[in-house]
């Protein structure tokens, strides 16, 4: 927004004002957000700008503007997460969808951060030798759990309403998955930075995390949002225990964290993502339950 040259603060019509050009755009309904929101807020307190707006508007457009302003005044202030997402440039409707995602709540993110801190502390306590196995084993499970908590009849209280809405269930799933995965991988990444002694070996959780999350989602289409991630998580732990039993010497990295294991993870992630896309229409209907 551009303002007049008088400087000072808004309010009361004695400070700076919305430029006439912006007011004309506002009157036409052509002022984009977030300038629109700023104009809305300023107009409530500035009689001068309201008078200018009346001069540059046709009466019908002015009525529509007031109606819009009235509706804006009813809209509550966005919460912390929503405000953060808006500042990051996320569209307001997407930010609202994400604000309703359980795994993006501060309580969940705080729990993930606490688990990671504990794991990093244990890993550091053992000294930077060999492979940070505990961290690498745990880190892929956290995004899997976060995504599993984001969608489904058991964990999303509004699932039944969401599934019959025109927005495709797969689209909602993907919006939430990308956000939860981003947050989860970000926290894991920060934890990795706390383990500089291991170098790139401490990043060996990334591809397994993508593989587990994609596999969990793809199986959700058939097995549901509780059984599928549980099976995938259980399978991951079983795989690590098997790899540990098969490891000779006891000090080298477990098979999934070797170069070959990373390649397998990447292949599984790609295949599962492809399967997920093929099964996308299954997310558009609710799971059956007796009623």
């Amino acid at each position: 927004m551009t303002y007049g040259t008088t400087g000072g603060t808004s309010g009361g019509g004695t400070g700076w004002h919305v430029s006439e050009e912006d007011l004309r755009a506002y009157a036409r309904g052509g002022l984009p957000a977030p300038l629109l929101w700023s104009a809305d807020a300023h107009l409530t307190a500035c009689a001068h700008c309201r008078a200018v707006l009346a001069d540059v508007s046709d009466p019908a457009a002015l009525d529509a503007g007031w109606e819009r302003l009235d509706a804006e005044l009813d809209a509550p202030r966005p919460g912390f997460l929503e405000s953060l997402l808006l500042r990051l440039g996320i569209a307001d409707h997407t930010a609202r969808l994400l604000a309703a995602t359980p795994a993006l709540r501060l309580s969940w993110l705080g729990a993930v951060a606490a688990v990671l801190l504990l794991t990093v502390a244990v890993t550091l306590g053992r000294g930077a030798t060999g492979s940070p196995t505990l961290f690498l084993a745990l880190a892929p499970l956290l995004p899997l759990a976060g995504v599993a908590l984001s969608y489904g009849p058991v964990l999303d209280p509004t699932y039944e309403m969401a599934v019959v809405a025109p927005m495709h269930g797969f689209r909602l799933l993907m919006i939430r998955t990308v956000a939860v995965l981003g947050a989860g991988l970000g926290l894991n990444g920060l934890a990795t930075l706390a383990l500089p002694g291991y170098g790139l070996r401490a990043l060996a959780w990334l591809l397994p995390a993508l593989a587990l999350t994609a596999t969990g989602l793809a199986l959700t289409a058939r097995l549901g949002p509780v059984l599928a991630p549980s099976l995938v998580g259980g399978g991951w732990i079983a795989l690590l225990l098997t790899a540990d039993a098969a490891r000779t010497g006891g000090e080298g990295p477990l098979a999934p964290f070797t170069a070959a294991g990373q390649g397998v993870s990447a292949a599984v992630a790609v295949l599962a993502a492809g399967l997920l896309v093929l099964l996308r229409d299954r997310f558009d209907l609710s799971g059956r339950r007796t009623a």
Partner: peptide, 27 residues
């Protein structure tokens, strides 16, 4: 048994459903 996000206000919750119903224009 309609479910709600309990921390939402009625305005926020209905706004959320409106987005699911493809009303993306904020005003």
């Amino acid at each position: 048994t309609p479910g709600f996000h309990p921390d939402f206000t009625p305005f926020e919750f209905v706004d959320y459903v409106a987005i699911l119903k493809e009303l993306t224009d904020r005003a």
